[in-house]
Nucleic acid binder design. Structure first.
Length: 208
DNA sequence: TAAACGATTAGCT
DNA sequence: GCTAATCGTTTAT
């Protein structure tokens, strides 16, 4: 049941200017680090300030969907920088990625959580409506038809830079079993909108 | 054609 | 803190 959890007036847009596609023509970890604090926004629906993203690299990254080559599902990852890559997780969750690197190089950044931004006159929003990758897709009202869409060109979805440049923290990624140790999760520490996804398969490292 | 798995979340203890 | 639910994609036969 796709539920649009936030609903902003059609006329309102977040402050700042939209990122251009060449912002994404870099390595995914650099893009990811710079995306924290930016505003992810869908026209007429809403969005908010990104507080948690993860990078997936084109090589030496077993968790990347393209690690075993190009398939029908991950095809969008090979597209031009700034392309939207959307796929279904666990058959139910719509996960939003933004493609990085040059065309033909499969890299992307997963949008894991954002702090909802209320437009003027709107009541305060629950900070947890987008506190997880599946919740991000749901809050923005996305579905698989968004796969392959280009940011900016299609003005319906964009990332805005309003000059906010927070201190970003780096951690291990969440919810994957391979490539776990790579520090490719970027967060805004202390945000109430961070996901609380459990880490599966991590052996107890606590001393007895 | 069949089986296993997952870039998760919600709900219950 | 732990587990069930849920189904498309991938991989194996």
């Amino acid at each position: 049941m796709p539920v649009v959890a936030i609903g902003a007036p059609r006329s309102w847009r977040p402050p700042g200017s939209p990122l251009r596609p060449d912002f994404f023509d870099r390595s995914a970890d650099q893009v990811a680090a710079d995306l924290v604090g930016k505003i992810l926004w869908r026209d007429g629906v809403g969005g908010g300030r990104l507080v948690e993203v993860e990078a997936y690299l084109p090589s030496d990254d077993p968790a990347c969907h393209a690690a075993r080559g190009r398939t029908r599902r991950n095809d969008a990852m090979f597209g031009r920088p700034g392309t939207v890559y959307v796929y279904l997780s666990y058959g139910i969750h719509v996960l939003l990625n933004l493609v990085c690197e040059s065309e033909g190089v499969p890299a992307a950044v997963l949008m894991r959580a954002f702090e909802p931004l209320a437009s003027p006159g709107e009541p305060r929003l629950d900070p947890r409506v987008a506190a997880g990758p599946g919740l991000v897709g749901r809050a923005l009202g996305l579905d698989l038809s968004w796969n392959g869409v280009r940011l900016g060109c299609e003005a319906r979805l964009g990332v805005f830079d309003d000059g906010f440049a927070p201190a970003v923290e780096t951690t291990e990624r969440i919810g994957i079993s391979m490539g776990r140790s790579l520090p490719l999760r970027f967060i805004l520490p202390g945000s109430r909108s961070l996901s609380r996804a459990p880490r599966r398969g991590i052996p107890a490292g606590r001393p007895s």
